[in-house]
Simulated assay, not measured.
Amino acid sequence: MPVHTSASDQRRSGKGVGLGLAVLSALAFGGSGVAAKPLIEAGLDPLHVVWLRVTGAALVMLPVAVRHRSLPRRRPALLAGFGLLAVAGVQACYFAALSRIPVGVALLVEYLAPALVLAWVRFVQRRPVTRAAALGVVLAVGGLACVVEVWSGLSFDAVGLALALAAACCQVGYFVLSDQGSDAGDDAPDPLGVIAYGLLVGALVLTVVARPWTMDWTVLTGTADLNGTHVPAGFLLAWIVLIATVVAYVTGVLSVRRLSPQVATVVACLEAVVATGLAWVLLGEHLSVPQLVGGAVVLVGAFIAQSSAPVDRAAGPVARGGPESELSARGTAV
């Protein structure tokens, strides 16, 4: 006899899939730095690595863009915003910040995005958020401060901090724009099409910023040093393009569609933990006790945030707003 699945079971199943995709996205994004650092040390400018990453991913996703060639006509603003903010903005602002302030400070400021998303949902869109999600954000940001050891090189370079904050704001745009169309039914833009055209827009913008014609292309034909092991530079670039960009963006956008921006951003904080852990294993950058404790706190914060049921989204995705009276099925909304 047929087995009927309740709506609550379907929601739990969808949330489980979304959580898995969010973790996979964080793992994929987290591996980018470990693969990029040897290329930078081999002689490539950081912005050139970013350009190779985005342009390579755009070429991989080009068949998808062709398949959804009507999308630019239907959603030009969405594609332009995704390309400018979620792709080019985050990368360019973050790397520009690194030229003025320590990596740990820049990373911590960028990962203020969960708190900014929560503020956007609560005060701009005027939708309630659960206290569990808010607590998860606080724990995740506090844990990140330990992971990056922000106290070891704090600098108050105003321009550098502003650039890092701009990267955080662009990351907010990534999660909010990824949520667009999640409840639009048949008229919803295909997430793969949005990613494909976003990468194309980002590649065009970064071409102007990075000026790849000045790049030392011979670096890509040689090897790069990975903690004493010589690895083909082409392999590292392929990893950055295919795993750290294509897989990371695809799983990230799909996870936001199944969770909510405020939950997905907290889970995305795992990227910093993954990046630090991989740097320990593959680059020999050992972790201190505060970093280990901070990583555990980030994991706890992500678990608390994702275990809280998101606000009912029937009225529309976060980016479009919704009624204030709808509360979370579990926990108290704030």
Score class of each variant (00 low, 15 high):
185 G>T: 08
160 G>D: 06
171 Q>A: 11
195 I>C: 15
199 L>W: 04
162 A>G: 10
194 V>R: 04
187 D>P: 11
204 L>P: 00
200 L>C: 15
211 R>Q: 14
175 F>Q: 07
163 L>G: 08
188 A>Y: 05
179 D>P: 15
196 A>T: 04
200 L>A: 06
189 P>K: 02
191 P>E: 10
189 P>A: 06
185 G>K: 11
176 V>Q: 12
210 A>Q: 00
204 L>R: 02
206 L>P: 02
206 L>F: 01
179 D>E: 13
194 V>Q: 00
208 V>I: 03
193 G>Y: 09
197 Y>L: 06
202 G>Y: 09
209 V>Y: 05
161 L>G: 09
213 W>M: 04
169 C>A: 10
165 L>D: 03
178 S>H: 13
195 I>A: 15
194 V>A: 13
177 L>I: 01
211 R>V: 01
160 G>R: 09
187 D>E: 14
173 G>M: 12
175 F>K: 00
208 V>T: 11
211 R>W: 00
163 L>C: 11
186 D>N: 15
196 A>G: 02
193 G>H: 01
191 P>W: 05
191 P>K: 05
185 G>N: 14
176 V>W: 09
176 V>E: 13
210 A>Y: 00
198 G>F: 07
172 V>S: 07
164 A>V: 10
167 A>G: 07
196 A>Y: 11
161 L>W: 05
207 T>Q: 05
164 A>D: 04
197 Y>M: 09
160 G>K: 00
184 A>I: 06
170 C>K: 03
205 V>S: 09
195 I>W: 06
208 V>G: 08
208 V>P: 05
165 L>G: 03
209 V>G: 09
210 A>T: 00
195 I>R: 14
168 A>R: 01
196 A>H: 14
193 G>R: 07
178 S>D: 12
192 L>D: 12
174 Y>W: 14
207 T>F: 00
187 D>A: 13
180 Q>T: 13
187 D>Q: 11
199 L>K: 12
206 L>S: 08
166 A>E: 03
162 A>D: 10
